Computed example of a mutant assay.
Amino acid sequence: MARNDQLIRQHKLLQLLECSRFGRTLEELRADLVLDLGLTTLHERTVRRDVEALQAAGFDIQNDSVERGKVYKLGQNNKGVHEVGLSASEMIALSIGRELLFPLVGTQYWRGIETFWNKVQEAVPDGVFDHYSRYRKTLHVFGGPSKSYENHEGMLKTINRAIIEHRVIEVEYESVGKPVSTRKIEPYGLAVYQSSIYIVAAAPEVVEPSERLRNWKLDRFRHATALDEYFKPDPNIELSKHLGKSIGIFSGEDPTMVSIRLGSRAAAYVREDPWHPEQKLTTQDDGTTVMTVPASHPREVLPKVLSLGADAEVLAPPEFREAVAEAVQKMATSYAGASA
């Protein structure tokens, strides 16, 4: 156990020295080790012994006297001493991200994730990996995706190639409740939203520039073919901005600001789990809260409002309020004959 602790400290020491251009004093190294490794105590003498042990092992660790004291830094012979340099906390963060990307299982993206994860396990010292394994058991991730796109691997490869080469794709697309239709799209990128993959692509037949870019759900693709037909990407399109304008996955250059009245419990939930970075909550004189939030389609607001029950009411605009009212009326009809 003690040897593992020493190995972990020395591994982290090398990381700290690698990213320090002007060197660190023993006290600075000690403080960083305590913070990064979550230690309760660590004496400066222990840090000095670890540095000396690394020097004895052949690492080119040099020291120099500067205004703030003696500093230690890596010499030119030891720049980039680790192929992969990760601490236990960084491995925990990486493993959580890996679990959240389970929808990509079976695709070329997942193989890349797994290959990198395997390299990490092989590259870090056993002591560091053991330290990670112990602490990883204290954190559990629930509510993750329950599906994968393994069966869509071929289509993903075709779509990815078309995005890079700016090629038009001919797809067989089946919207919910509608027959399969064949159409052409101009793909710009991929997006993962709530465990589903979407293709952000322009519809060539749409003339209005603000309406051309749409998000197509990969689950509804039945076939995709990259054509020998190319398109010129619109230089004004920024996918990060396009995807971040609304609370959901529906696209639109000008999302609508929706006003929703929230009771005290609903307001507390929304403060804990915000719907959008640009949402605004305003407390009213009667104790309720009015939230304004951007949305591109009533279907983005509907499930969120219904999840809050009678503690949430859409005030405006009318089409959003009517959409929720219609859904509530249909639900009331369905439950009208239920026993108490």
Rank of each mutant, 00 (worst) to 15 (best):
H152P: 00
V34T: 09
G143C: 12
A267E: 00
E165W: 04
K147Q: 12
L306A: 10
G252D: 00
L262N: 03
G263H: 08
V200S: 07
T115M: 06
F142L: 13
H11A: 11
G248Y: 00
P317E: 04
L243V: 06
F320G: 01
V290M: 02
A327L: 07
E208K: 15
F129D: 01
R24A: 07
K245E: 02
E52T: 08
Q329E: 11
V105K: 15
V34L: 13
G112V: 05
G97W: 06
F129C: 01
T46I: 04
M291T: 02
Y72C: 01
E52K: 09
W110F: 14
R21M: 09
N78P: 04
A123I: 01
S148M: 07
S339H: 13
R134P: 02
L39R: 12
Q121P: 04
R222S: 02
G252Q: 03
Y269W: 10
L42A: 05
P318A: 15
T282N: 13
E186L: 12
A336I: 06
E18R: 11
S175L: 01
S89T: 10
R220M: 00
A323Q: 04
P209T: 02
R3K: 12
V71Y: 07
K241I: 08
A224T: 02
L42M: 04
T138F: 12
V192T: 11
